[in-house]
Design a binder for these strands. Structure first.
Lengths: 187, 187, 187, 187
DNA sequence: ACATACGGGACGACCCGTTCAT
DNA sequence: ATGAACGGGTCGTCCCGTATGT
């Protein structure tokens, strides 16, 4: 199947990423072997290495993808809505999120390759929080960075829980999160 | 056929766990190979397999350890203090926490073996929260389980951040956590 | 659908052989991958497989080429001059010579394909030696075949040395070779 | 089979080298795969990698071995006798010689590792030639280094021939070699 | 108690050659 | 005629766990 339309190429690439995402969600980072991705996608190893130079590149692509979607969701509908959307849209995204985040603590190479792929989301993110503070939707007695960090912490921790399929009432958790970052009533 | 003292045995075991903890923190779950633990501890493969039946048993022991310490710290000094203590005592514990938690989503075998090792903390945990609610130290308009879950979520998320050595003001984070779970003022 | 001239075809073929010769000299027989030849020539895989049926055919062509040039050089100017010329003209030819010769000991398929390509030089070669013996330029107390073999041995061994860029005084070596095969003075 | 006598260890190592030598002779350097060595020795991959860190180390050991034997044979009985002995003792040694020598032109890593393994023969070699010159057994109108080089060239070239099982009268070749390096009669 | 030889299995990388669209 | 997509195969490396000694 040579020299083919751009849509075909894109769909092949997406096909690989889809399979890899499922495998990553089911077996974790190191359990996501090429063989399993081959099996899941139905493609051959040759095909996969044609689209991605090595295995890590696939995982980096998945990590960048979830990172992008998360920032977009937050800046569109706020933290609570972003959490709901990530869960709703594709639970496997949460697994990708966790595996990616955990991978960042060791594997310096992964850090750099992911950074190269997913740059430029953070600025948007920060700007959005400051905007919300100015509009009185978020407390402004703490630095916007800390609000962002706290929210991310909760999102990551929550994802970790859900991925382990532990019973969790997402609505309650988001309510508690909002309680933590909503503007404080004047004493 | 040396027949050594019990203290010797315990110290050997602790020595292995210490080395394994460092290796786990540095290289992650799958990167923590027996060879690296051998290198780190200075013991031989034979010694290690003498004290632990297989590699997973080592990781299970580490997971149970951190789990136990966490519950103990919380029930002693509350969430904020527990977080500070974990960080202070041994940053590697946080890495163990993350690797363990992440592992729980796949690897069903690991889940069961860890459960078998670290049972019996949860009851204590729940009882403590209810106690705090009764004493007016924690809000009681949400179920105690949700409070525990939220706190765990924050702790895990925070650990994930710290492990990646991202800049984090722990005091601010704990304050936000406390704001979320403190009793609500009457409207 | 170009339909190009014969010269174009020939030059393309030569271009591939040139690149392949460099790659072979630098990386050895098995290190000479299609990918490297692609890189070296600037052509595409498709182009290469269009002109040569498979990888081995390229190497066979290179082997036949050096074989032909060697015989031609010897019959033109004698062994000493042939050695000098091979070195002067293209040091990579020596590498091709070595890789080819070494390959002949295993890889029966290569032997046959090369033989098919480079037949018909040997007769010329033998005839030339006998001629030289008759003219008193080469000793005739040993069979002409042995003289040819000895000279080839020296040429091969010398090529092996030069290819490894070990310090070698070619003039001295050729002098010693000539001493070995020059007519013996009557006792 | 753990913790075993030194003889056992040595014999296992020799067993691996024997198998590897046969494989190398039959299939060439790159054709000498671990799988073939496994098959030839009857051992497992685990066993092999227990004795040798990687594949190249095996080949380096073989190269050093033949190098050592060659120098020893020459300094014991002279070039002609050394050639006969190498052929007689184990024809596979000649294949090892060729594959090793050819490998030296590319693969810089191999060069260094072999040099590290087979150092310290050359001095002996040089000393022996000078001794022979002083004793009038070798011509002294050319530098001893060039005599050594020429002899090596012939040995290598001859090995290349024999390895390819081409018809060769070794006695004649050695006679020609001796003619080249014997003392010149006074004019 | 501890050290090590060893088996066996798996994984990632790579490469060749074919097929097919320009 | 050229080049990309792709299949399928194989190789070297590494690692775990067991068995067997000291």
């Amino acid at each position: 199947v040579p020299k083919v339309s751009q849509e075909h190429l894109d769909s092949r690439r997406a096909q690989i990423l889809d399979g890899a995402r499922r495998v990553l969600a089911k077996h974790g980072y190191d359990g996501a072997t090429i063989a399993k991705i081959v099996e899941e996608t139905g493609l051959s190893r040759g095909a996969i290495f044609h689209y991605f130079h090595d295995k890590k590149e696939i995982l980096v692509a998945l990590g960048a993808e979830v990172s992008e979607r998360y920032v977009e969701a937050v800046t569109t509908g706020g933290f609570a809505e972003a959490i709901r959307e990530l869960i709703r849209e594709d639970p496997e995204l949460l697994a990708v999120l966790i595996e990616t985040e955990a991978r960042l603590s060791h594997d310096e190479d992964f850090v750099q390759r992911l950074a190269a792929s997913s740059a430029a989301f953070l600025p948007t993110f920060g700007a959005w929080i400051e905007e919300q503070q100015a509009a009185g939707a978020l407390r402004d007695d703490v630095d916007w960075r800390d609000i962002g960090r706290f929210a991310n912490i909760v999102v990551n921790g929550l994802a970790l829980r859900i991925v382990r399929s532990e019973e969790t009432d997402v609505e309650v958790i988001t309510r508690l999160l909002e309680d933590a970052i909503r503007p404080k009533p004047p004493a």
